[in-house]
Design a protein around this nucleic acid. Structure first.
Lengths: 198, 198
DNA sequence: CTTGTTTTATGATTTAAGTCATAAAACGTA
DNA sequence: TACGTTTTATGACTTAAATCATAAAACAAG
């Protein structure tokens, strides 16, 4: 999102996170701007009985966790490395200075937040309608634009596990498995040795 | 959000909308920036069988519908006047010019989008947990900060109908009614001649 | 004041997704 | 290569919310 050399000019430092390592936790106050160099990060919540809800999954060059930074509020979710990852961290003060001194970056931030809001609006509407087929198809459909699904001769490879799809749509893994099978039977997606293609 | 005289300087015009009048529709491309002078606006989706999901409710001084404006994408939901309303409309080009020439406004926009993203994150997690009590309490709790609930001697008056609460949380109106009664019985909120207080 | 509409309310019934149990296939790694 | 873990898979059963029906209270409009 923001050029790496610009971030470094303002004092950003690279930090490595192991798979499953926590980057920040729900309820804590934000201290940094985070931008991924490599790897994969998820933001998620766990409810009282341990059930997970994934707010979003982020990949290289993407930033995450900005909203509370601008609002002086605590994080509404946890950030966890899904894979070994490298992240650039820029302290809040420096980040704000960077924004002030580089007005063009503000528009980038706006576009980024707008994009995420757009995704959440679509998924919120979808999740309230309750139909598993709809939810999963919409996730996959918008996911092709937002997540880094790769296209090959079979179509787009949806590189999410059934569990992740469940955690992103609010469905249980068994329901996801059964629904995906249904959707395959209907011909709207393909399953090639367990991998889902659209 | 943005000072009215500044908006007018860039050519914003006031327009009146009757109760239930449509301001813009899902699927259309955005043409203006909208800021409410008076009244109440909801953004919502209707699914295939006519069920409504309310994305948000907006009041005086608030803006709405910006994300697609920044993304050149179509609106993900409809905007409808809940009451007779007056709205300032600023054409997209002029709005972009305003932003360019007034960098401080960008930060305001960022904060506003961050706020809405924050609300949606919280509600998304809540809606996926499925428990009506949780959903409704969270809506009311965060709503006290985001919607204009007024406090009196009984507490905060939740000036939503049961139907609206259902449309905001993805629950059916009967479920909302029963759940609110349960919550009253548990003493976590009050019902005083049908109005809900927290 | 009357009438039509919206909102709140409640009981009976249905149903779809969740839950529970169990297992095979695939994957990772020591 | 063997072993533990993760992922996918399936069947039986449960349950909570949706649905359906019906109505009273409140409100709005003429």
């Amino acid at each position: 999102m923001i050029a790496i050399d610009l971030l470094e000019k303002y004092g950003a430092l690279k930090k490595s996170f192991d798979k499953n390592e926590i980057i920040f936790e729900e309820g804590n106050l934000p201290t940094h701007y985070y931008q991924i160099i490599s790897g994969e990060i998820k933001m998620s919540n766990y409810n009282d009985d341990g059930r997970e809800f994934i707010q979003g999954i982020f990949y290289k060059e993407q930033s995450f966790g900005e909203p509370p930074l601008f609002l002086n509020q605590t994080y509404p979710a946890n950030a966890i490395a899904v894979d070994d990852s490298e992240i650039l961290l820029l302290p809040k003060q420096n980040f704000m200075k960077l924004l002030e001194e580089n007005p063009a970056i503000s528009l980038k931030i706006i576009e980024n937040l707008a994009q995420r809001l757009y995704y959440k609006s679509i998924m919120a509407a979808e999740m309230s309608t309750q139909e598993p087929e709809h939810r999963i198809l919409k996730l996959i459909g918008t996911g092709i634009a937002y997540f880094n699904f790769k296209k090959d001769e079979n179509g787009y490879l949806i590189n999410f596990t059934r569990q992740q799809i469940g955690d992103l749509t609010g469905l249980r893994v068994e329901t996801v498995i059964r629904t995906i099978k249904m959707l395959e039977k209907k011909g709207v997606l393909k399953i090639i040795n367990r991998k889902v293609y659209r």
